[in-house]
């Protein structure tokens, strides 16, 4: 059996300082590693580039954007975290994932001393949402897991559905012309 002190020591050893972006969704603050964000854009600047998609299976994904000849899925963070509907003003375009995340606003960037593991009492979806918790300025902030916004399975299903939708549109256009 591991004692709590041993676990704490191990946890302290595994904590490394890192720079995070603090963002707000429906008055809730979250942190995301700055390294996992490629770009920040206003939703206005993407308005013309975003393509609306309708996937009832994925209410959190209603748009795609094309970047570097790849389709990025735009995830509404409020819907993802089951928060009240807001009007997002910013998009976090993630690095190494074909996903972008709609958020209300950026609070600031900050350096955290490390990420505490999510207590095992948490057994729901949050285990995939969060890498762990940060303690910054006397506030506990969940540190999001970038890959938690869309699982590989969800990417696969979205790709398949989007491809089918594009094929159908092309077929309809061909019939009309």
């Amino acid at each position: 059996m591991k004692s709590t002190d041993e676990q704490n020591a191990k946890s302290r050893r595994s904590r490394r300082p890192e720079t995070v972006i603090l963002f707000i969704v429906a008055h809730q603050m979250f942190a995301i590693s700055a390294d996992s964000v490629q770009e920040l854009r206003s939703t206005d600047s993407l308005a013309g580039a975003a393509i609306e998609i309708e996937q009832p299976e994925f209410p959190k994904v209603r748009h795609t954007i094309e970047r570097s000849h790849q389709t990025y899925y735009v995830v509404n963070a409020g819907v993802h975290f089951h928060l009240p509907v807001t009007r997002p003003a910013l998009v976090l375009i993630l690095r190494q994932l074909r996903a972008a995340v709609l958020v209300d606003r950026i609070e600031r960037m900050a350096e955290i001393s490390g990420v505490y593991p999510l207590p095992q009492a948490f057994t729901g979806e949050e285990r995939s949402w969060y890498r762990g918790l940060a303690y910054l300025d006397d506030v506990v902030i969940p540190v999001v897991h970038p890959a938690g916004f869309l699982s590989p399975e969800e990417f696969h299903r979205l790709d398949r559905a989007t491809k089918a939708s594009v094929s159908q549109s092309e077929m309809e256009s061909a019939v009309q012309s």
């Binding site: 809730q28 979250f30 009492a121 948490f122």
Partner: peptide, 24 residues
């Protein structure tokens, strides 16, 4: 202070910080 954030675990109200630990 009880710190709360979105989650779906029944009965968990949030976390407190006590003696350097985050306690559910």
């Amino acid at each position: 202070r009880l710190h709360t954030f979105p989650h779906t675990s029944p009965l968990v109200a949030g976390v407190i910080v006590r003696r350097g630990r985050i306690v559910p």
